[in-house]
């Protein structure tokens, strides 16, 4: 009953906030990639930090979890910027399928994040919160590990999991194959198994290998060494635990991040757990910037 009430309130609030918050699509040329990236930008109150939120694997900023988080921040008066990683597609609009040709790399993604941070700063933002969902979280962690950006005041990772590892079905043989191909300068795409793209992740060796570095140890290590405060919000019923094990939460907690587990929520905080996620995000952010 309580959940129904919340859903009703969210619907009414969405209708209301739509009338007061105007999201816009902004683009930015990435000269290194010769691509134009696109993001959804919503300007909040000037006294509040901007939240740069990064979507998950192969999705866009229109993914419902991202939209939900952006909406929560917009309602709370925060400026939000939700870029869509180009994945080597200029102004990409749609999610990329597993069997599409993946030529994008982790480095390209980070580069694009970097440009968007710069874009925010260009917009006069002085405090930035990095918010990642799913694979967007380790990518942002990778960014933080390799870039010192003083404007970044807070990092929030949702559904944080590593991207490579035998637990996830990553085959060493495929990594070896990719490495050999790369070594042989054979850039032809090949079908790999990568996360949920089982045997149909059609990627160049470079692209495939670039993400393999985001393994379990890499994440835990980087999380432990982050220079900014970090919060990690996990769904209590995320199915990834079936492959990575529930001790992953313990491992995360051991890194020093503020671990919040939303019981009952899945990987995407679907349904009524969106509100829990929103509540947690606003609560964390508000607390950080009081």
């Amino acid at each position: 009953m309580q959940k129904i009430f919340k859903t009703l309130c969210l619907s009414i609030s969405l209708m209301f906030t739509h009338s007061i918050a105007f999201a816009e699509v902004v683009t930015q040329h990435i000269p290194e990639l010769k691509l134009t990236a696109e993001a959804e930008y919503s300007k909040g109150m000037p006294n509040k930090p901007a939240v740069l939120m990064l979507h998950g694997f192969l999705t866009t900023n229109q993914f419902h979890t991202v939209r939900s988080m952006a909406q929560a921040y917009n309602e709370a008066g925060y400026t939000t910027l939700a870029p869509t990683l180009t994945l080597n597609i200029s102004q990409r609009k749609q999610s990329v399928k597993c069997n599409a040709i993946h030529t994008h790399t982790l480095e390209n993604d980070v580069l694009e994040v970097k440009h968007w941070i710069q874009w925010l700063k260009d917009q006069g933002v002085q405090e930035i919160v990095l918010l990642g969902h799913s694979s967007g979280s380790p990518e942002l962690m990778h960014f933080l590990a390799h870039n010192e950006e003083p404007t970044i005041k807070l990092a929030i990772f949702t559904s944080l999991f590593f991207l490579s590892g035998p637990e996830l079905g990553t085959l060493q043989s495929e990594i070896d194959h990719a490495r050999n191909a790369l070594k042989n300068n054979n850039m032809q795409p090949h079908k790999y198994s990568f996360l949920f793209c089982k045997n149909n992740y059609f990627a160049t060796p470079e692209s495939f290998l670039s993400y393999q570095k985001l393994d379990r140890a890499y994440l835990l290590d980087n999380l432990k060494n982050l220079k900014v405060p970090s919060y990690t919000i996990m769904g209590g019923e995320d199915k990834r635990y079936q492959s990575v094990g529930h001790k992953w939460l313990d491992e995360l907690e051991q890194t020093g991040t503020h671990l919040i587990v939303v019981e009952g929520a899945n990987h995407f905080f679907s349904s009524e757990y969106e509100f829990d996620l929103q509540d947690q995000l606003i609560k964390i952010t508000d607390a950080q910037f009081e």
Binding site: K34, L35, N88, I89, S90, Q91, R92, K93, Q94, V96, A100, I101, T103, M187, Q188, P189, F202, T204
Partner: peptide, 16 residues
Amino acid sequence: DEVHQQFHDPSYYFFW
């Protein structure tokens, strides 16, 4: 998107 991608970079056009 992928059509646009091909126009942007047709390196892998045949595969695509």
